[in-house]
Design a protein around this nucleic acid. Structure first.
Length: 419
DNA sequence: CGGATTTTACGTGACCTATG
DNA sequence: CATAGGTCACGTAAAATCCG
């Protein structure tokens, strides 16, 4: 237990450290000395409480603040979207604390940082390594601002490149896998085998409304505005849905606040209409197979997405399983992920020559370029996008019929005749 | 290019389901 | 009707996207 001692005019406190030894302090975090016994005791008790929670155990004014303590405070003080907060905490807990937790801030050096980065690079993807080093830099940058350390040991990328020639990035092939309308049709037919018309419609919605996956999961039925006017229907993107540790399934604003209204090609509006009553108890357009909100997790990919893209062999009905039919792989889009469906729709709109501002608006992007600033999107532009998407769908059906009619066509995907 | 934010994936344990 | 083995829910780690 903490106890205070009189030392000259002021008081000093002794407090117990986690290792059983006693530490002492004669001033608080702001350099104020203790004029009463009670002040000193309270400070010591606070330190002990912190220590019990694995927090700061040394006087920060001495510069002897551990990374663990500072990072914990940093996280508590940060103001981020829930999922971002969760992500940062995860990175700090999984990677930064195990490496740097016991370091005092000023002992984190450029050399030790470089060694760590090198080790990370061997074990992880560049994207992940970059996000970890960036986070360490970010946290330490605030430690500099707080005058806890003199300078940030983690260099900025662009500073590190000063005075050196860095060859430009490879301008080669676009490697992001995306699909043409016929491939999307094939994938949708596969999806129909797995999830009936709701699966078919989901794939079509991703590609033809260019929704992000979280927006698909969070699409409410009452945000699908259906009209008898062929081009009068629209999807209103007001939410995205995702899973949060502790809170479970929750609705949030779409990424970067990209609220928007998407006029629909008539075929998509009809598909959505036909799905409205499939899960009458769910407010969501695309609930999971159990009728709950769709969590886009490994089961979604393993049971639904990957099979409809890559195909799968038939599973016989046997112990513990219902059995299921084979799916044909969709040629040419190996490894495509749902986000690739969104990219696909973007590519089609670009190919069809729509104004950049109109395409960016539909994607939910902000166009801050000169063109974006001076151009404006009109209802007619939005309508033309829906018209050209409808044309693409109809053409893909024509291609499917041609393929279907060709005898001896090898590896034909599960293309059903349009009803 | 930095960094906030989203998407994709792994591991685990409780809970089902068709079979012998 | 016990049980082998699949299914589902959840917490979390890892990887990628894309705004400003």
């Amino acid at each position: 237990m903490a106890y205070a001692e009189k030392r000259g005019k002021y008081w000093r406190v002794k407090f117990k450290l986690p290792n059983g030894k006693y530490g002492s302090a004669s001033e608080d975090d702001f350099g104020n000395r203790f004029t009463t016994e009670r002040e000193a005791e309270q400070y010591g008790q606070a330190l002990e409480a912190d220590a019990r929670r694995g927090r700061r155990v040394v006087n920060p004014r001495s510069g002897k603040l551990t990374f663990r303590a500072f990072a914990t405070d940093w996280l508590d003080a940060s103001d981020l979207a829930d999922l971002s907060d969760q992500t940062y905490r995860s990175r700090v807990r999984a990677q930064l604390i195990p490496e740097w937790g016991d370091y005092e801030l000023r002992d984190i050096t450029l050399m030790s940082y470089r060694a760590w980065k090198k080790r990370l690079a061997r074990a992880h993807e560049t994207n992940y390594v970059n996000s970890l080093t960036a986070l360490l830099r970010l946290i330490l940058e605030d430690a500099v601002d707080d005058k806890l350390i003199d300078s940030n040991p983690v260099p900025f990328g662009r500073k590190a490149k000063r005075g050196r020639y860095v060859p430009p990035a490879n301008l080669g092939e676009d490697e992001y896998v995306h699909a043409d309308p016929h491939q999307i049709l094939c994938a949708s037919e596969n999806a129909r085998c797995v999830r009936d018309s709701i699966g078919y419609t989901m794939i079509m919605t991703i590609a033809y409304a260019q929704l992000r996956m979280g927006e698909v999961a969070g699409l409410l039925k009452d945000r699908v505005w259906l009209s008898d006017d062929p081009y009068g229907s629209a999807i209103r993107v007001d939410y995205q849905g995702h899973y949060l540790t502790g809170k479970g399934w929750t609705l949030h604003p779409p990424k970067y606040g990209s609220y928007r209204t998407l006029p629909l090609p008539p075929f998509l509006a009809e598909l959505l209409r036909s799905c409205m009553d499939l899960y009458p108890d769910s407010p969501y357009m695309f609930p999971s197979i159990t009728g709950r909100p769709l969590r886009v997790d490994d089961q979604f990919y393993g049971e639904f997405w990957n099979p409809i893209i890559a195909g799968r062999p038939a599973e016989p009905r046997r112990k513990g399983t219902r059995g299921r039919p084979a799916l044909c792989p969709v040629p040419g889009i190996e490894g495509m992920v749902p986000h690739g469906g969104r990219h696909s729709g973007k590519v089609w709109m670009d190919e069809d020559g729509h104004p950049r501002v109109a395409v960016e608006e539909r994607m939910g992007h902000r166009d801050r370029s000169v063109e974006g600033t001076y151009s404006h999107v009109t209802p007619e532009m939005r309508r033309r996008i829906a018209v050209s998407l409808q044309a693409r769908y109809e053409r893909s059906l024509g291609v499917a019929q041609t393929l279907w009619a060709t005898p001896g066509q090898p590896d034909l995907p599960n293309i059903a005749q349009p009803a």
